[in-house]
């Protein structure tokens, strides 16, 4: 660590070297300044994409139930969407244990808010903002919560949908997705989403996204839940699977037309 830090020319923090070098330099400096070793860890059990969208009456969110241990599909019944308070719904991809820790933080937050007993309650905007600060604070300590979170909700007729990443990057949009969903689901959503989606059309659109992910994301599994939040509260569906079709001739004999030496 010391060696790396002292190797960098003193006045080149900005502009000259690449981002990764700069990060390393800053990283080394921090560990020297604070006299602590780096705290960054890596994830053990992870969940893959979450996809969510606004529809006519609220928010719809989908996530599969796989929990991967590296590339091993270790758990097959992980609930990755949970209601938060009265007006919010949280979905998570990334480290499952970190997600459960976040749920504990939120439970306490909602409980203490409830104890004021003043008839006020935290809405999705407040919960999202809280999560934003928690994630950013942990990245500042070089000990991130290894998740991408999606927060949806409805309060006072206002729909809300936002997301936060591991390092605190956050935004709102009409539809959001995490991880692979950013590559595979959002193009579909950008093409087909509109303000007045009915519940049925919203579910159909989410299922279309989840099917694309199932075919192309190796850590996705065919067991998913769809959650809905409206002014009336949260409903999370029972786990179910999507219909798939694998009988294409190219799937049956993938080596045909690509003859190798073996």
């Amino acid at each position: 660590m010391n060696f790396m830090a002292s190797k960098q020319p003193e006045n080149s923090l900005l502009g000259l070297e690449s981002d990764s070098q700069r990060t390393l330099y800053v990283t080394c400096l921090i560990s020297i300044e604070l006299g602590s070793s780096l705290d960054v860890r890596y994830p053990y059990v992870t969940g893959t994409s979450v996809v969510a969208l606004k529809y006519k009456d609220g928010i719809l969110m989908a996530a599969d139930m796989g929990g991967s241990y590296g590339s091993t599909l270790r758990y097959k019944s992980v609930e990755r969407m949970k209601p938060i308070g009265k007006h919010s719904l949280l979905g998570a991809s990334g480290e499952i244990s970190d997600f459960q820790e976040i749920l504990r933080y939120l439970d306490e937050l909602i409980l203490y808010d409830n104890m004021w007993d003043d008839g006020n309650s935290l809405g999705p905007k407040e919960v999202h903002n809280y999560l934003t600060r928690v994630m950013y604070n942990r990245r500042n300590k070089f000990n991130p919560l290894w998740n991408s979170l999606v927060l949806g909700g409805v309060k006072n007729g206002q729909k809300y949908l936002g997301t936060v990443s591991m390092i605190g990057v956050n935004f709102e949009d009409n539809h959001v997705a995490t991880g692979f969903g950013n590559h595979l689901a959002r193009p579909v959503l950008r093409q087909e989403w509109h303000e007045n989606l009915s519940f049925e059309d919203g579910v159909r659109l989410l299922e279309k996204c989840m099917r694309v992910l199932l075919y192309r994301d190796r850590s996705a599994v065919n067991k998913l839940q769809i959650a809905k939040i409206t002014e009336d509260g949260v409903t999370i569906s029972q786990p179910y699977s999507l219909k798939t079709y694998w009988e294409f001739s190219a799937f049956e004999n993938p080596a045909q037309g690509a003859i190798g030496s073996w």
Partner: peptide, 10 residues
């Protein structure tokens, strides 16, 4: 380890 090296910046 499958993740790329973590960076506090983007």
């Amino acid at each position: 380890k499958e993740q790329a090296n973590w960076s506090p910046y983007d």
